[in-house]
Computed example of a mutant assay.
Amino acid sequence: MYIIVGLGNPTREYTATRHNIGFDAITRLADEYDIVLDQKKHKALCGSGYMGGQKVLLAQPQTYMNLSGESVRELVDFYKIDPTTELIIIYDDISLEVGQLRIRKKGSAGGHNGIKSIIAHLGTQEFLRIKVGVGNKPDNWDLADYVLGRFPSEEQPIIREALGHAAKACECIITEDVASAMNLYNKKA
């Protein structure tokens, strides 16, 4: 079984913001694989189904970004999965161009508070992650204002395509392996 977690903030005011790209990826996965997100458990909105013949649980933590680790820890413990091989975290990355994906097996938080929380709660930096580029903040912008802002209309098609690639990358990780997904999707947008 795989658990795929998309990071974001739960209230309506954060819908479709750069920081909620993880939530958007989970919604895309749910749509593409006919998984209904209708279960509230482990501090997350969840739905279970199948991808490539493998059982998956999709989750959107409802704890706010900075506390995402609480939900992830509960999910890992309850389902008794190995977080180093059966957990995939999808989240925004300001160091990548808009729409660019970067898949990694491990790494630091890189300043991302949701990832910091997950590392603290799991006690390891070793878990699969799919970073979705949201672009670097413009000069003279506050970082919080930037990541909590929405994509301009000209970037929306790029983001829709990136979400499709993120969904396919998840399936590739599950049905093949992470190296194959990295070879296919770790390139410029």
Rank of each mutant, 00 (worst) to 15 (best):
S71C: 06
D38E: 13
S68F: 07
D38T: 09
S71D: 01
G52Q: 12
I90D: 06
P83C: 11
L58D: 01
Q60A: 07
D82W: 03
P61T: 05
L37K: 01
L57S: 00
T85S: 15
E86V: 03
A44F: 02
S68V: 10
T84P: 00
V72E: 11
L45T: 03
Y64F: 15
C46P: 12
Q39M: 12
Y33Q: 00
Q62A: 09
Q54C: 14
G53I: 04
M51Y: 00
V76E: 00
Y91R: 14
L45K: 05
A59M: 01
M65S: 02
P61V: 09
L67C: 04
A44T: 09
L87T: 02
I89N: 09
E74F: 08
E32D: 14
N66Q: 05
D34G: 04
D77E: 15
K41L: 11
V72K: 11
L37D: 04
F78G: 08
M65N: 05
G52S: 10
I90C: 06
I35S: 02
I89S: 07
D38L: 00
E70A: 09
K41A: 13
S71R: 10
Y79I: 07
G69V: 03
Q62T: 15
D38C: 09
Y33T: 01
Y79N: 09
L45S: 03
G47K: 12
G53K: 03
Q54M: 14
S68K: 07
H42N: 15
Y50S: 12
V36S: 14
I89W: 12
E32Y: 11
T84V: 02
K80W: 08
L87N: 03
I35L: 01
I88K: 04
I81Q: 06
V56Q: 04
K43F: 11
K41E: 14
D38V: 08
Q39H: 07
E70F: 13
T63K: 00
Y91C: 15
P61R: 02
K43N: 10
E86K: 15
G52L: 07
D77A: 10
I90E: 04
L45M: 12
Q60G: 03
Y33D: 01
Y33N: 06
V76W: 02
Q62S: 12
K55V: 07
Q60K: 15
Y50P: 00
D38N: 15
H42Q: 13
A59I: 07
L37G: 00
L75C: 06
V56E: 08
D38P: 05
T85G: 14
Q54P: 03
M51S: 00
Y79G: 06
Y50E: 13
V56N: 06
K80S: 14
M51W: 01
V76R: 02
E32W: 11
G52A: 08
Q60T: 07
Q62V: 10
Y50V: 05
C46L: 15
